[in-house]
Design a protein around this nucleic acid. Structure first.
Lengths: 164, 164
DNA sequence: AGCCTGAGTTGAGAAAGTAAATCTAGGAGG
DNA sequence: CCTCCTAGATTTACTTTCTCAACTCAGGCT
């Protein structure tokens, strides 16, 4: 029973989040959904994902509450289902934006990024169309914290493991 | 050749970023690296990842410039290698923080989050220890943009595809 | 010489992903 | 009524990736 204790690296919200959106397609499906895609064949055609895998991913995203399976019917057709983004899914935007920013910085085409995310509000007052970026800020109001200015501390639900 | 054009969803920095850190373990390895882990067996023991897969992931992260393989030698032992985070790897912090925030919001233990990231600067002046969060802000200075206030637009490197 | 340790490698079996063909339920056309 | 069409999947066969456990390898230590 010696050794120091550290935060259990497996009992962590990052790991849990990754168990929902942590493989090849989930985040791309969410990105398309954010972009307005709702139908099976549209996801398939835009992403080039195999049908069975898309079906499995959509199911797991529905089970995780990221998408909602909603029946709809267009006039002259039978009832079908579409997959609508939930609040939970929308809240993955910062994650996607963070990945986009990282990809733009380190993996972009020489011509530049292929996508720019801009500020655009429904009420025209705040529609400034400026590019949006991710910023780290602390509850005391310090903004634009550099990566080195943050550190992990145990939270209320922390579990610990002994290190040898 | 009719139809409207849209941004090619495959030529996208999100997809590229995910090709580097988009499967099961990469981001967790980066998280451990951010937490100070550098040695093969420490990654393996903390994450419970299989050795061969860890070796493969470390190689691909080194190839992607996220980690650097550095020889070192402790007194009384032979030379070994450790894996050190690069700037590129450090810059994945916002992504990890965004995932952490999402996981905390939707998948946390009832007791609360297991990890809290706090502001902590090396020079004590700015060490406020307040929790850090992700914020979307635009270049015009509008802060805390809600998910609905942003939209994707083509950037300089955009490719287009025809939709039918 | 034989043992210990950190850092991997190897190999077998399970799970996940890919591609292409097939199924299905209802509407439309004849 | 019978057949075709279509969006939305499901099935099948194949390939790749992941997991677990055992093994190797190069030094230093005793």
């Amino acid at each position: 029973m010696g050794g120091t204790r550290r935060i259990d690296p497996v009992n962590c919200s990052v790991a849990r989040a990754l168990s929902v959106v942590g493989e090849r397609w989930s985040l791309l499906i969410v990105r398309e959904a954010i972009d307005g895609v709702t139908r099976f064949n549209d996801f398939r055609d835009r992403l080039g994902i195999a049908g069975n895998l898309l079906a499995a991913r959509l199911d797991s995203l529905v089970a995780a509450g990221v998408l909602l399976r909603v029946p709809y019917r267009e006039p002259g057709t039978r009832q079908r289902y579409e997959y609508r983004l939930t609040r939970r899914g929308l809240d993955l935007r910062p994650t996607l934006l963070a990945l986009l920013e990282w990809g733009d910085r380190y993996l972009a085409d020489p011509e530049g990024p292929s996508v720019v995310v801009r500020h655009h509000s429904a009420d025209d007052e705040h529609a400034c169309e400026e590019p949006v970026r991710i910023s780290l800020e602390c509850a005391a109001g310090h903004r634009d914290l550099p990566p080195s200015a943050i550190h992990r501390t145990p939270g209320p639900g922390a579990r610990f493991v002994d290190s040898t």
